[in-house]
């Protein structure tokens, strides 16, 4: 009973925050609602007995990605809204129609298939020790690849976002007139 109330509450809050994240005008509000949606999802993972994933979701998404998004909003001055500008693209109605199509395409088969209307059969647990063992034995190659990918992403993001130093600037302005010792202005040829 309590489980079900908790599920409905968390799911409702998560979906409401997701809708707000997509619909609000002020981008910082979007980012904060997205962070709340990520936190709601973390709580859903905890309800599904995936403790490690839930805490990793909080740590990575709320603690890092949400802050990244907020920094990007501030660095691109996107929190200053120009009054009168549109926030939705010209094809927004088609986009929403496509999204509804996708939703019905996924949700209708789910709701109409009886084998998915089931309760969990066994008690599942994801002990951290077991995750560690799996990471080091069966998934060691993806782990190393993830390490390389994260390094590449880190370096790539820094290089892309770095302000480039101009190498040699060819100055189009005429050079400033020089003053000789006698104080008269000598202009260069």
């Amino acid at each position: 009973m309590l489980n079900e109330i908790a599920f409905y509450l968390i799911a409702a809050v998560t979906l409401a925050c997701a809708v707000a994240a997509m619909a609000l005008r002020q981008l910082v509000h979007c980012a904060l609602c997205a962070a709340a949606a990520f936190a709601g999802l973390a709580m859903l993972y905890l309800q599904l007995d995936a403790e490690f994933v839930g805490f990793a979701q909080l740590l990575v998404y709320v603690g890092a990605i949400a802050i990244l998004i907020v920094f990007a909003v501030l660095l691109t001055r996107a929190d200053e809204i120009i009054p009168g500008s549109r926030q939705s693209s010209p094809s927004s109605l088609m986009g929403i129609a496509a999204a509804l199509l996708v939703l019905s395409g996924i949700a209708l088969p789910v709701l109409s298939s009886p084998s998915l209307h089931r309760l969990p059969v066994t008690t599942a647990a994801a002990p951290v020790k077991l995750i560690g063992v799996e990471l080091m034995t069966r998934y060691v190659l993806p782990l190393e690849m993830a390490g390389i990918l994260l390094t590449a992403a880190l370096l790539g993001a820094v290089v892309i976002a770095m302000r480039e130093e101009p190498e040699t600037k060819l100055d189009p302005r005429p050079p400033a007139p020089r003053r000789a010792e006698t104080g008269e202005v000598v202009s260069l040829p």
Binding site: A11, A21, A23, L93, A99, V102, V110, L111
Partner: peptide
């Protein structure tokens, strides 16, 4: 909660994200 509840929530979240990505 049944499995289908979680799958419907996931589908809703996916379509909300999709709508936002296309429409903004």
């Amino acid at each position: 909660p049944l499995l289908s509840h979680y799958l419907v929530v996931s589908a809703l979240l996916f379509s909300i994200g999709f709508a936002g990505a296309v429409a903004r």
